[in-house]
Design a protein around this nucleic acid. Structure first.
Lengths: 245, 245
DNA sequence: CGGTGCATTGACCATTTTCAACTACTGTGG
DNA sequence: CCACAGTAGTTGAAAATGGTCAATGCACCG
């Protein structure tokens, strides 16, 4: 019976009874490279809320920093507001990825995070994570790695925005999402883009019209098949070539 | 006699005998908000090399990460290489600012850093800083802050590249450098830009020609006075307005 | 069934890039 | 000490990329 429960938990990522040990994201999420007994300690501090609706805020800019969050299911965007109130999307996050680390320094989140669709989120209170880090050296190291991954990915985006054309930017985003799908053992060539064209454009520094036109061009060149948010990458190699990797 | 030495040390930032306690960058560098006896401990691990020539590398991409560096005098740029070998400048750094933290995660620097002019650099071995951090809680906190400042400033650049015109980008850079001059108790309206037009353009995602034209336009509008690398900001308010702050 | 939000497409426009010519400055070797 | 090559910066004209404005389509929902 309890066995049956565990196995059904593996199947439904929205389930909030699941433990870090059972979670099939273990191989890419925080537990990555942790010993089983350390995972149990981590598991004890992780708060699993009920699934959030689409467009729900996980935290807002300037909220006091209390926790980092792991996406368990669904997807999330982070964004900043410019001085004149415009939105700037700074990242898209998929299951197994961690958000909220930008708040560590100041004690307040520098970004806001909201769900792009129904999503389940694990909350990891930072004070408890901090004390856990002193117990588990691997934990601290892994955490440092996550922070500097954030820096690295921001700098990749800087390069993309600074040097690449609209087509190159969009190809790069598709390739990046594809790779993250593969990491989750899902199809890297057929998936659903959870974000709107507006969000894509905002993230890549393009207007929604340009995004739409590039998708149409890619379609005409038989590089992709797009039907609204459903996308299928028909020629991954050519896309990688365009994305310049 | 030793008094005389100490006072002359304060005057010459290239001097490598100076201690963190005497360094006039103390108020903005790592010692910020540290107790005097903690500064002495920090001082013991800081390596002060002789001044580096212009265009000297402090570290290269993929060098093993062993230390972070504080700029003591002169200035530095950090940059990445794109897959096809182009340079992408990711930051300019002035005295009191810390570089090299992008290496913490992977154990290898993700960027390269080179001097823009003759510069003195303090090397802070990371393993010793790490153990010092366990002794001095403030130290660890301050260090976390530095890392997330890096994230925040990268994200500001992302926003700038994504949303702003050439004029806005350049105004924003000038305002940023001006503010950092003021922080060092120097003139915020008259200074020397240590980097080339090429570096500015590279950093801001513009061609060198566009940078040059924007400077000329600003000059015509009496916002600035430019003579090569010497610049004087004639109308700080108007520039701030353009930079959208 | 009409409304609303999101996406697509076209025509036109603006900003920035590209290409090219020219100037000023710097350092090196004769 | 001068000449000259090489580097850095400025300016102009033409080209291109992406943005703006506007019309239309389409799905979802009260």
């Amino acid at each position: 019976m309890s066995n049956k429960l565990a196995s059904s938990a593996k199947l439904c990522p929205h389930n909030n009874q699941i433990s870090c040990n059972d979670c099939r994201l273990g191989s890419i999420c925080l537990p990555l490279a942790m010993h089983e007994d350390d995972i149990i300690k981590l598991d004890e501090i992780v708060q699993r809320g009920r699934p959030l609706a689409k467009n729900a805020h996980i935290y807002r800019k300037n909220d006091p920093f209390t926790a980092v969050y792991a996406v368990r299911s669904g997807s999330v965007k982070t964004y900043r507001l410019t001085n004149d109130g415009q939105e700037q999307v700074t990242g898209f996050y998929f299951p197994g990825e961690i958000i909220g680390m930008d708040g560590i320094g100041t004690g307040h989140y520098a970004n806001a995070a909201k769900t792009l669709e129904t999503a389940a989120i694990c909350e990891i209170p930072f004070d408890r994570l901090e004390s856990l880090s002193t117990e588990i050296p691997n934990m601290q190291r892994h955490f440092f790695q996550l922070m500097s991954q954030e820096i690295t990915s921001d700098q990749q985006l800087i390069t993309l925005l600074s040097k690449n054309s609209a087509e190159e930017r969009i190809a790069a985003l598709l390739i990046s999402i594809s790779a993250r799908m593969v990491r989750r053992k899902l199809s890297g060539t057929q998936f659903r883009l959870p974000m709107s064209r507006t969000d894509i454009g905002n993230y890549l520094g393009l207007t929604i019209e340009t995004v739409s036109r590039v998708f149409s061009r890619f379609k005409k060149q038989n590089l992709v098949d797009v039907d609204g948010k459903e996308i299928s990458l028909k020629d991954l190699e050519a896309l990688k070539e365009i994305a310049d990797m």
